[in-house]
C-alpha cells in the first residue's frame, strides 16, 4: 500500500537535497537525473503494487497533450 502520509523525518532538508542535485543543470540533464532517481527508488521499493499505485497517483489528472511516435499499422 502506497504511503502518502508524512514519512520523511526532515521534509525541508529532503526538499533542499532534491533541488540541489539539479543545480545548474540543463533541462535534459535534469531529466536524466530524475529518471535515474526514479529507477533507483523503484528498485529499492520493489513491491509492484506500491509502484503501480505511485505511478497511478503521479499520472492522476493529467490529460495527454502530446503524441507518441508510433503509427497505426494495417496490412
Amino acid at each position: 500500500m502506497l504511503n502518502t502520509e508524512p514519512n520523511i523525518a526532515a521534509p525541508d532538508d529532503f526538499y533542499e537535497a532534491l533541488l540541489a542535485i539539479h543545480q545548474d543543470l540543463l533541462p535534459a540533464q535534469s531529466r536524466l537525473v530524475d529518471a535515474k532517481l526514479i529507477l533507483l527508488l523503484s528498485n529499492h521499493i520493489g513491491d509492484p503494487e506500491v509502484l503501480r499505485q505511485a505511478m497511478a497517483k503521479a499520472r492522476e489528472g493529467i490529460v495527454p497533450a502530446g503524441q507518441d511516435a508510433i503509427l497505426a499499422a494495417r496490412a
Binding site: R31, L32, K36, I38, L39, G66, D68
Partner: peptide
C-alpha cells in the same frame, strides 16, 4: 524511444547499468 520520457529512462537505465546490477 517513442517519446522524450522513453528516451530519458532508456539513457538512465544504460547509465546505471554500468555499476548497478538491477539496471
Amino acid at each position: 524511444p517513442k517519446n522524450e520520457a522513453s528516451r530519458a529512462f532508456r539513457d538512465a537505465t544504460l547509465a546505471l547499468a554500468r555499476d548497478c546490477a538491477f539496471a
